[in-house]
Structure formats: structure tokens, C-alpha cells
């Protein structure tokens, strides 16, 4: 059913640290790898080796430049995937019931065998978290690696989303944001985690941690001139060579 369940006590989600992310895109690749080989239709690519490649991804890393008023610009890498919203607009618009939010842990999923590929859920999502797969004709989205996190066939350290498991910088954290005492909740409280587009009322479960303030830097001294005009023989050679046709400008 596309009616949203009552808010669950358990709210599984991600906390993404914008201070730590180095923009390596490893999470993008591990996500695509795991999710193309496991649950649901593969994440197809169109013209992958040609002139105009495109494909389905459940996680994409944007990069933004932020220009403070009186300090050097900062480059901030910004991974974005489904935020598993509490009030998920993508769920209620679905005409078939394919799109749903799990009552037990709040994960938003698509039942691919019920999806008619109308695309309305992607229209309703402000974050661009849903992509219609051009090959399978069904809507794909982050499953929070539901086939890893509860998978007892995997070693315990692998029972977290592929993006979190692979992040070399430790910029991604997975846990229960409904539990105030969980590590992720403490991290959010400590670092001032925030919601994306809070004004749209989607109540995202995933949180973003802001970049830490930069150290105060004094403006750089003017650069010293390193290359100086030559003296003696070198100066004569320079002048002589410059005078020749095709010489230095």
C-alpha cells in the first residue's frame, strides 16, 4: 500500500559527513556494483563505451563551490542518495502500490514487479533519488542495501550498506536515527546534522553533517618574483637570441 505507515520507532538511515568526504566516488561505484548484481533489475548503462554514455545510479556525488564573503572558496563534495523520508512524497503518489515505506525500519523500497514505470514518484522526489531504468522500465532507488544489512550469510562487518562499507574516508555512517542513543544520532547532535530542503516537509531520515569551520588563515603575502633578468653572459645571450627572427617575444 502506498499509504505511509505510522512513524516507525526504528529509522534506519545514513549520516553523511561533508567535512570528511573527499569526492572519490568510491561509494557510487560500490553501490552500482552491489545493486546491479543483487536485488532487483540490474542498473543498466546505455552506450557505456560510446560517445554519449548514461546509466542508472542510486547514489551520485555532486561537487559544490562555496564562496565565503572574506575567505578563499571551498570545494565541498556532496554525495546524494535516497533520504528515506518519514513523509515520503514518492510513496503516496504511486498508483500501483509498488512504492512503499517499511513499517518496521522505515526503509523506502520499490516492488519492481508492481511498478508500471510511470515516473510520477521521481517527479515527486525533490532530491533526484529515483531513476527510471531505461532498460528494465522500472523505478530504481537506494534500498539502504536491505539485502546486506540483515544478511546473515555475510560477515558481520559487511552488514552495512555497500557505500558505507567502502568509503575510504569514513564520511558515511549507517545506523538507527530513531534511537537517540545510537552512534549516528549522537553524531548528528554533536555536529549539528541538518536536513536537505526542510521546507518541503519530507522529514528526511538521512542527515548531513556540515563542513567544520576552516582555520583562520591570514591572507597570503604577495609572491616573490623567482625568475629575474639575467646578468652578464646570460643577459647578452638572452638579448641576442631574442633579436633573431622567431626569437622570444
Amino acid at each position: 500500500m502506498t499509504q505511509l505507515p505510522p512513524p516507525s520507532a526504528k529509522k534506519l538511515g545514513l549520516v553523511i559527513d561533508l567535512d570528511t568526504c573527499v569526492g572519490c566516488h568510491a561509494c557510487v561505484i560500490s553501490c552500482k556494483g552491489w545493486n546491479t548484481e543483487n536485488y532487483g533489475a540490474p542498473l543498466s548503462d546505455q552506450d557505456p563505451y560510446g560517445a554519449d554514455p548514461s546509466g542508472t545510479f542510486l547514489n551520485r556525488v555532486h561537487s559544490f563551490e562555496v564562496q565565503p564573503e572574506a575567505a578563499p572558496a571551498q570545494l565541498i563534495h556532496f554525495p546524494k542518495s535516497c533520504l528515506h523520508c518519514e513523509d515520503a512524497p514518492c510513496v503516496t503518489v504511486c498508483p500501483t502500490g509498488a512504492s512503499y515505506k517499511r513499517a518496521e525500519d522505515g526503509i523506502v523500497l520499490v516492488n519492481e514487479s508492481d511498478c508500471i514505470g510511470c515516473g510520477l514518484c521521481a517527479w515527486a522526489c525533490p532530491y533526484g533519488a529515483r531513476e527510471l531504468d531505461a532498460d528494465a522500465g522500472v523505478m530504481k532507488k537506494c534500498t539502504l542495501c536491505v539485502d546486506r544489512i540483515y544478511n546473515e550469510n555475510l560477515p558481520e562487518e559487511d552488514r552495512e550498506p555497500a557505500c558505507v562499507r567502502t568509503c575510504p574516508a569514513g564520511a558515511r555512517h549507517f545506523g538507527d536515527l530513531g534511537d537517540d542513543n545510537s552512534d549516528v544520532s549522537k553524531l548528528v547532535a554533536e555536529r549539528g546534522g541538518f536536513d536537505l530542503m526542510p521546507e518541503l516537509g519530507t522529514k528526511p531520515v538521512n542527515k548531513y553533517l556540515p563542513p567544520r569551520p576552516k582555520d583562520v588563515t591570514t591572507p597570503c603575502a604577495p609572491l616573490e618574483t623567482v625568475a629575474q633578468d639575467g646578468k652578464g653572459f646570460a643577459a647578452w645571450l638572452d638579448r641576442a637570441l631574442s633579436a633573431l627572427p622567431g626569437g622570444a617575444s
Partner: peptide, 10 residues
């Protein structure tokens, strides 16, 4: 922090 602009697409 400051004015945000899209720098690199994903």
C-alpha cells in the same frame, strides 16, 4: 558558509 554554486556534476 557562503554563496553556493554547482562546481562539478556527478
Amino acid at each position: 558558509i557562503g554563496t553556493v554554486r554547482a562546481f562539478e556534476p556527478p
